[in-house]
Simulated scan of single mutants.
Amino acid sequence: MTSAHSDPSPVTVRVPAKVNLELLVGPLRDDGFHTLSTVYQAVSLHDDVTVALDDDWGCSVSGPYADVVPTDATNLALRAASLLAEETGVETPVHISISKSIPVAGGMAGGSADAAATLVACDRLWALGLSTEELEEYAAELGSDVPFLIRGGTAVGSGRGERLAPVLARGNYHWVFAISDIGLSTPDVYAECDRLRGKSSVPDPSPNSELMIALRSGDPHILAPQLTNDLQDAAVSLRPELGELLASGMEFGALGGVVSGSGPTVAFLVEDVESAIDLTVALTATGAAREVRKAIGPIHGAHVIPARVD
């Protein structure tokens, strides 16, 4: 370790959650993943990840979801730091402090977000000077959603979701996320999707042109009918309560609703901030979801912010 006078200050990165506006699932690949075509949007639920030089590698988590996030070597943020150090020849350990606000195991890429934030923070802390494209390449080794959380905004993901292309999108969209206690395993949801499809042949997916037109319009009324998730039927098959939650949100005034990723969070698109408040109150009153959160999108991806002062 260098002296305290020359040690760089800790770096804090804020990183968003994501919602899949469209998730089209193609055939199973030889590597065990499905071919995907998805349209991501970054939304204003976020984690803050602080990386500081330390004598040993380590990770700590605070916030409402801290008790369900591992802090050992399986933590994706810690894996991100280790990968970047190995690939760039850095031998200086760091401690990662995660202030967790993105729901865990909710289909909103909370773990992937922390990994993305860690890559950006370590790049700054270690003065590596990597480009966004280089960071996204490392991110793709960690998980399908990680590259998008570095980029943010709205983007098409292909391959298994890690290959990104920007989308021309206008305006801001108001979201209400209903977060349930229902447990869903991503592999189980994909397996159920395959079971429901049976032996029917599935083509390689491509983005829906109507969705692209809707995003260019900036009008939530046009976007809402285009929200699509091929995993939704599988998630509802495994947990029928999700179907009831989707129906409740529509009944209470949502323009559209979709299971986010592999679930179990349900994302509702609404007209404006007042509608978001009304839907949040209605869903909370029913008790159909453990937690209801409002957000807007699109927003930018992982970015450095001034360090928090505790």
Rank of each mutant, 00 (worst) to 15 (best):
D188N: 05
D188V: 02
P205L: 03
S180N: 11
Y173I: 08
W175S: 10
D233G: 09
A234D: 04
P187E: 06
P207T: 06
R170C: 05
D181M: 11
N208I: 11
R197G: 12
S180Q: 00
D194L: 05
P220M: 09
A234G: 11
M212Y: 05
L168N: 13
G218L: 09
N229T: 11
A178R: 03
H221L: 06
I182F: 02
V202F: 10
L223M: 11
H221D: 14
L223I: 14
L164F: 02
L227Y: 10
E210W: 11
A191E: 01
S185C: 10
S209T: 07
L223S: 08
V176F: 05
A178T: 11
R195V: 04
R216Q: 15
I179P: 00
P166R: 00
A169V: 13
R195L: 07
A214H: 05
R216H: 14
S206F: 13
Q226W: 07
P166V: 01
Q226I: 05
A234Q: 03
V176S: 07
L215R: 00
Q232L: 09
Q226Y: 01
L227K: 14
D230M: 09
Q232C: 08
S217A: 12
V167L: 03
S201Q: 15
E210Y: 07
E162C: 08
A169F: 01
P205K: 02
R197Y: 06
A235S: 15
T186A: 14
H174G: 08
G198D: 13
E162N: 08
C193P: 00
A191R: 12
V176W: 03
L215H: 00
S180D: 02
Y173E: 04
A165H: 09
L231S: 06
P203T: 11
E210G: 11
P207V: 06
P203I: 12
R197P: 00
V236G: 06
I179W: 11
G183W: 07
V167T: 09
V176M: 11
Y173D: 01
A235W: 05
A235L: 03
V167S: 06
A214T: 05
S200G: 13
S206D: 09
S180V: 13
P220D: 04
G198P: 09
L223N: 02
R170L: 10
S185Q: 08
A214P: 02
Q232M: 06
I213H: 14
L184P: 03
S185N: 12
I213Y: 13
W175A: 04
I222Y: 05
H221W: 12
V167A: 11
E192H: 00
K199C: 07
P220E: 02
D204K: 15
A178V: 10
S185I: 13
G183S: 11
W175L: 13
L215N: 00
G218A: 07
G161W: 00
E210S: 15
L223W: 09
A235P: 07
H174K: 08
L231D: 03
D188Y: 01
S180Y: 00
D230T: 05
L223E: 04
I222H: 09
R197T: 15
P187I: 04
A224M: 10
E210H: 13
H174M: 04
D219S: 14
H221E: 14
L223F: 09
L211N: 14
P205D: 05
I213K: 15
E162H: 04
R195Q: 12
I179M: 10
V167R: 04
E162R: 01
